[in-house]
């Protein structure tokens, strides 16, 4: 299991745009150079983010990209959705029938239950983290995630 390149690079591009704040739009060239990516690939990633409603483009010589809404309102989950990745989509089983027209495990599959549970957990976690939360250094982010995890565990414990 691994993160896709487009998700990693796409999120990094989005974070670069977020870092521009309310200032001048961030150009494709700036994002590409900052993240060590090709301009063409960066343009495609930003285009997907725009089609997903996360960034807006500004035309003209000083044009570029800005966040479509505040960083605190853009979750990591929504960004990954826009970038095309989903851990376990509704079409997953239909797309894995092997050489048959229908998966032999279509009516009873323990894996499906496992993947669906993981998908729900990943989604719940990533829906709770926004672009604003990611504007920390690595150490601070680690501490923040640990504390958030502890809070969530405590709430769960109290809830039970």
């Amino acid at each position: 299991m691994q993160l896709l390149a487009s998700e990693e690079y796409g999120l990094r591009c989005l974070m670069r745009v977020a870092a521009g704040g309310d200032g001048a739009p961030v150009s494709i060239a700036e994002v590409a150079a900052s993240e060590g990516l090709g301009a063409g690939y960066t343009a495609k990633l930003l285009r997907m983010l725009r089609l997903g409603g996360l960034v807006g483009s500004v035309r003209g010589a000083d044009g570029g990209y800005r966040l479509a809404r505040p960083a605190r309102e853009i979750t990591v989950w929504s960004a990954l959705q826009a970038l095309g990745g989903e851990f376990f989509s509704a079409e997953f089983c239909a797309c894995h029938p092997g050489r048959l027209r229908r998966c032999v495990r279509a009516s009873d599959c323990s894996l499906r239950s496992l993947w669906a549970t993981l998908q729900a957990g990943v989604r719940a976690t990533l829906e709770g983290i926004t672009l604003a939360d990611l504007q920390r250094d690595e150490r601070s982010m680690g501490v923040w995630i640990d504390e958030a995890g502890a809070r969530a565990a405590g709430e769960h414990f109290i809830g039970v």
Binding site: L4, A5, S6, E7, Y9, Y41, K44, L83, G84, G85
Partner: peptide, 9 residues
């Protein structure tokens, strides 16, 4: 092909 292009879909 997904890895080839660094594109997920």
């Amino acid at each position: 092909v997904k890895e080839f292009s660094s594109w997920p879909t």
